[in-house]
Design a protein around this nucleic acid. Sequence first.
DNA 1: CTACGATTCAAACGTTTGTTTGAAACGGAC
DNA 2: GTCCGTTTCAAACAAACGTTTGAATCGTAG
Lengths: 226, 226
Amino acid sequence: MAVTEPHTEPHVDTREALLDAAEKLFSEHGIQASSLRMITQQAGANLAAVHYHFGSKEGLVRAVFARRLRPLEEERLRLLVACDEAGEAGVEQVLAAFVAPLLRRVRETPEGGQDFARLMGLAFMEPSEELRSMLLEEFRTTADRFIAGLHERLPHLSRQEMIWRFHFSAGAMAHVVSCSQMVERFSAGLCKCGDHESLLRYLVVFLASGLKAPATMGAELQGEPA
Amino acid sequence: MAVTEPHTEPHVDTREALLDAAEKLFSEHGIQASSLRMITQQAGANLAAVHYHFGSKEGLVRAVFARRLRPLEEERLRLLVACDEAGEAGVEQVLAAFVAPLLRRVRETPEGGQDFARLMGLAFMEPSEELRSMLLEEFRTTADRFIAGLHERLPHLSRQEMIWRFHFSAGAMAHVVSCSQMVERFSAGLCKCGDHESLLRYLVVFLASGLKAPATMGAELQGEPA
DNA sequence: CTACGATTCAAACGTTTGTTTGAAACGGAC
DNA sequence: GTCCGTTTCAAACAAACGTTTGAATCGTAG
């Protein structure tokens, strides 16, 4: 009926073409710097199409992030549940459940993966408070569950230090993914960001070792027994 | 005739007032979203003052970052040299030389430290290629020296893995510093970002453990002997 | 065919942007 | 006092922004 489906047409849907174009331009120039005229031109659509399909530029922005973020968080949680059900999963497996879904999407993004990666990095840096709140709420469930899952396997840590170490891990991952071009430039091409399998292994080994480190002594003595 | 502002002291230097206002507004709303009219009004200066003192908005942006970044990199390198001269300094001391100067500046920023922290996070995410190149060059020297300094103390790592682990560390630090408000919200106030002494200890312990981890096996076999 | 909802289109809306201008005001040197 | 380089000021510039509008176009059902 209304669903005119899967033919190899150039762009079956203006809506989808706008999302693709916006995602690409956002990652290249930032959100504010990507005008609706640039986006609609890239999408081969009319300027007014954005307001017809999304109501406003803000609506487009939210749709761009929601399209990518929701499946990502769902896959992370699915893999985390699989860890718990397996019973034998250690810190490394939980870490992989957190990192791998992101890296896989970076790899699968058509334009070399740069677009999606930089987009995620942009998410928490852009000015719009409305967007930031949406992303924080979206991310909060994931963060809480992974912190709990890691804490079960790292009972020697205080809750406070567990939370800190999780955010250290998330930061390392986010930085590598969104600034991978910097790594390549600094290493004179020695570190190939396209090799996501190696990168995943490197990252998990590094983070697991950091997470497993003995509890920090001398900090927050007032709350922690010696 | 001096226009006596109600609360702001008569700025001895318009130039400095513009830098302060720009830094504050950049960190709050991003670079693109901070118009010259907002900046000059906040600084109590005329709209044209930006072009008189900095030539353009781009010039102002570069000046804002250069003012903070150069002393930061200099202090980092100074502390790194001190590590080498001491002879006894381990991975933890080198890490502290990298992290502490940034944390100290975050703490010393008047507006609760948020401004400077978010500004640094914004640096690598904003669209301007010109600014990004400037920051990359500024950061390259520091990165190379710290990678070398760490590699001396971690000879079991390949150069490739050493570089990766350094960027993991830089990412964890950058994320914590620029997204500290997120950590506080997620931890329901349990993790106080204002407590930089504890944070520094937590971070160094975590990163040192990650850096010291045994070399990753199975990755890049073609380049590394088993 | 006509008719209708869904979608696209070109053109314009008012606002805001970075930048430019030329004159006014300043502060020492002479 | 006059002079001169430095700095500030109000006003205007063209360009670009997000948004709105009303008519044109499409695909399909009656």
